[in-house]
Write a protein that binds this DNA or RNA. Structure first.
Length: 712
DNA sequence: TTGCGTAACCTTTTT
DNA sequence: GGTTACGCAA
């Protein structure tokens, strides 16, 4: 037991062994996850609670998994069946267990955001709503915002006609998905909340059971999640919340930092336990982070410190355009690689996912392996959703959503017109589309027969074979095999069977229904090759909780980061600044920040000023560079420091000795003229050299045959 | 009625 | 640049 605690610093120790409810204000890199898991281990080891008597809640599946992994390395316990998971995952569990009390069918489906959007569109169409006036996405977010606040349609206050309509659509949408036995993300939470608040017996049961509730990333909890936690906390239970108000970056989906203050008030917590010692970054990086975040008002207040030493200055690259920015990234990433950093140690961050494309392009043409997080994830891909819809119909054909998705995919001659009349019949009879289709006769006979046969064929098969069978027999596989550029999709469909096998191996419930629920809640990262040495590309949001040796924060421009949409939101700029704070604190040893004077965005060139966040980093922590030293002088970021060094691709040691041309040196090619050596890739006879010709563009040559002459 | 091609559109962040 | 909506041809 003592060895569990012996390596903690005094603040961490106080947090881990807190006797009652506590709020821990844990700065970036201060050992937050360690405190959480050590507390769980300590509670169990000292017999204060059994593994079944505690609940630990996180926001992401990744965080939940990591907690379990660390826990098993500390204690010889079986973590299966423990209530450790995401808010959504635990609510799902609660609702599956008590579906009857919750008023749901046993096999309720979970709608992800895009499913939800199509459901909203369907409802609006049925009500003949002018979607010019009522943008489906606005309606969707209206619904979600209210659910996140714990409000059903009949509780939402609406004074003007416009909001009254929104409320009406909210009610219609809820009625619709309930009819279909579907539940959206926010509904999972709201319904679980309502279940517990209405059913005293159930509530008391869980309150008795969970003596300790631990919450990660508490600053990101919504009002509803807070209420849910309080409902589960019995009079004798302890609530242990860990969070960092400076890292609250999810206000847009209902996160309420105010919950931190509220918690202290309501649970009589005198003061938060502050963890400010940082074990991650060198002090240059922490100083920058502290300086930036100090521009925010109303913080709970803490500054990070370290004794890890100063470290290298932050490097700021001022690019003329996005291509230059990408070129700079390529140069530096390669240089660091040759200096001994792995690719995996290096992360490129951006504010919005759309920015990844140009970076991917540059890395790809330079032959640098990379991995993109976020964006379209495995279970969100169209072909996967189609396959899941077939599986869903095989299990529960009444699902209108799934029905509509695949009734004419692959095409089988059922168009909008046919569906319209089917929908009318279904509405008139008050039944599902499936029931109507069964009654409709020949037009839908083939589809009905297909689903029936899928349903019969997979009875009793193991999960993986069920998936394989449905993928093969639904016609999806064949369709994509015949489609040009369909290889990836075929591969993904095959991967789906593996995902099912993986799920079956891990989960105690191996039913098809359980797998479908898992697919909706876990976006899944099966698609990208794991464990490979690759540069990590991701949005700042998805970087939260991660750390890297080297971090590049790109696109630091007014309008991009801070994002222009944040201007109209209350507290918008402050949230952007917290985002910047999160980005900076991801770096352990070296931080790069870049901006471009102009960039291609949404198909047109935009001219952006450098981000104000750059100015907020003290100048003595930064070295600035640009490709052109003087001529088209980049606008100085601060008036006081026009000093911008000329960027030289760093001289790299070792291996470059074998390379005839230095990176950055100017060469002449007999056909293309003058150019600059940009990169190498490959080894020996396969080695290639990349030369950038100002007029022609980038070219790769086989090094052995490249007829290049060095210039001056 | 369907399927395909072109035009217009829009783009923050996620469970 | 990529996706969706619409119009046109089969």
């Amino acid at each position: 037991m003592t060895d569990l605690l012996s390596t903690l610093n005094p603040d961490q120790l106080a947090a881990v062994t807190a006797p009652a409810s506590a709020l821990v204000l844990a700065g970036a890199g201060s050992g937050k996850t360690r405190v959480l898991t050590t507390r769980i281990a300590w509670l169990i080891q000292t017999n204060q609670v059994s593994p079944m008597g505690l609940m630990a809640v996180t926001f992401t599946n990744k965080a939940a998994r990591e907690m379990l992994t660390r826990l098993t390395s500390m204690l010889p316990i079986n973590t299966r069946g423990m209530w450790v998971g995401t808010f959504h995952g635990l609510c799902n569990r609660l609702l599956r267990t008590h579906h009857r009390e919750a008023g749901l069918p046993q096999l309720f489906t979970i709608l992800d955001s895009s499913d939800q959007l199509s459901a909203v569109k369907r409802v609006l169409r049925a009500l003949n709503v002018d979607t010019e006036k009522y943008d489906p996405r606005k309606v969707q977010s209206f619904i979600n915002q209210n659910k996140e606040a714990g409000l059903r349609a009949d509780k939402v206050e609406a004074w003007d006609p416009y909001s009254r309509h929104l409320v009406e659509y909210y009610a219609a949408y809820d009625a619709q998905i309930h009819r279909e036995g579907a539940v959206d993300f926010a509904e999972l939470l709201l319904r679980a909340y309502e279940l517990l608040s209405r059913n005293a017996l159930l509530r008391e049961h869980y309150q008795e059971r969970f003596r300790h509730i631990l919450v990660d990333e508490f600053q990101d909890t919504s009002r509803l999640q807070y209420l849910w936690l309080k409902l589960l906390k019995g009079p004798d239970s302890a609530l242990f919340a860990v969070g960092d108000d400076d890292q609250s970056i999810y206000a847009f989906r209902g996160a309420n930092v105010g919950n931190m203050g509220l918690l202290m008030e309501e649970l009589n917590i005198a003061a938060p336990i502050k963890l400010t010692r940082n074990y991650r970054s060198v002090s240059v990086i922490l100083d920058a982070a502290n300086a930036v975040i100090s521009h925010n008002q109303g913080r709970l207040g803490k500054d990070l410190w370290t004794d890890a030493g100063e470290g290298e200055l932050i490097r700021h690259f001022q690019a003329a355009d996005d291509n230059e920015e990408a070129r700079f990234l390529v140069e530096e990433i390669q240089a660091r690689k040759l200096d001994g950093d792995t690719y995996l140690d290096q992360a490129v961050l951006y504010r919005s996912n759309a920015q990844s494309r140009s970076i991917e392009h540059a890395l790809f043409s330079a032959g640098i392996p990379y991995r993109v997080y976020g964006g379209l994830r495995f279970f969100e891909r169209a072909e996967i959703k189609h396959a899941l819809a077939y599986l869903r119909l095989a299990a529960f054909p009444e699902d209108d959503n799934a029905f509509l998705r695949v009734v004419n995919f692959p095409a089988r001659g059922i168009g909008a017109r046919g569906l319209e009349s089917l929908d009318a019949e279904a509405r008139a009879a008050g039944v599902s589309l499936w029931a109507a289709a069964c009654a409709a006769g020949k037009k839908f006979a083939a589809f009905v027969a297909l689903i029936e046969s899928l349903k019969n064929d997979i009875v009793g098969l193991p999960l993986m074979e069920q998936v394989e069978h449905v993928v093969a027999r639904s016609g999806l596989l064949e369709f994509y095999k015949n489609e040009k550029d369909g290889e990836d999709r075929v591969e993904n469909l095959n991967e789906l069977a593996n995902a099912a096998a993986g799920f079956a191996a891990e989960s105690d419930d191996q039913s098809l229904e359980a797998f479908l629920g898992h697919a909706a809640l876990e976006a899944g990262e099966h698609a990208a090759a794991q464990g490979q040495d690759a540069v990590q590309l991701m949005s700042v949001h998805s970087a939260k909780g991660l750390e890297f040796q080297t971090v590049f924060i790109t696109g630091l421009e007014e309008g991009l980061f801070p994002h222009e949409n944040s201007r109209n939101e209350a507290d918008g700029l402050e949230e952007e600044r917290r985002l910047m704070y999160v980005a900076i604190t991801r770096a352990r040893k070296q931080l790069y920040v870049t901006h471009a004077q102009q960039r291609m965005l949404h198909g047109q060139i935009r001219y952006n000023l450098p981000s104000q966040f750059l100015r907020e980093i003290p100048e003595n922590l930064v070295r600035s560079f640009s490709f052109r030293a003087s001529k088209p002088a980049p606008a100085p970021v601060r008036a006081a420091t026009p000093r911008v060094e000329h960027y030289h691709p760093r001289p790299v040691s070792r291996r470059e000795a074998n390379l005839p041309y230095k990176i950055g040196s100017r060469v002449i090619h007999p056909k293309y003229g003058e150019g600059v050596v940009a990169a190498y890739q490959g080894q020996g006879a396969e080695a290639e050299i990349k030369v950038i010709f100002p007029k022609i563009g980038d070219k790769w040559f086989i090094l052995e045959y490249a007829r290049l002459t060095t210039l001056g």
